[in-house]
């Protein structure tokens, strides 16, 4: 339990840091960064917790899931950045209008 704790806790911290930034920052690029950090946190927890056994061979399934997750994340990020650029080009702003009012 001891050995896996640093990375598991880091993962939890990353998830919460990302969530905090996603909720507070109005700038969309910052929100996109925040979602990516949250994702890294989830992936870290997934793999770090798999090291709970003494076996020398780690469970390969979490690793495969994380690789899938990383590719999904880059696809979503690319789409988000493109939408952001389109929005910025047509409105001159990189924020969502009502965010400050909410």
């Amino acid at each position: 339990m001891n050995a896996l704790l640093p990375y598991t806790l880091t993962g939890v911290g990353l998830f919460c840091l990302g969530l905090h930034a996603l909720l507070t920052h109005p700038h969309l690029l910052r929100k996109i960064l925040a979602v990516n950090v949250m994702g890294s946190g989830v992936f870290l927890i997934l793999v770090a917790l798999a090291k709970r056994s003494d076996s020398p061979v780690p469970d390969p399934v979490p690793q495969a899931l994380v690789i899938t997750g990383i590719v999904v994340a880059v696809a979503a990020t690319a789409l988000a950045l493109n939408l952001l650029l389109g929005l910025a080009a047509s409105s001159g702003k990189a924020e969502l209008a009502e965010d400050l009012d909410e």
């Binding site: 927890i45 979503a76 988000a80 209008a97």
Partner: peptide, 23 residues
């Protein structure tokens, strides 16, 4: 575009929460 990007962020956040639960 602004509707879409808000939707995307919401759906990504939802997916990540779901994924953490699955973890």
């Amino acid at each position: 575009l602004s509707g879409a990007i808000r939707y995307l962020l919401a759906t990504m956040l939802g997916s990540l929460a779901y994924l953490l639960g699955v973890v």
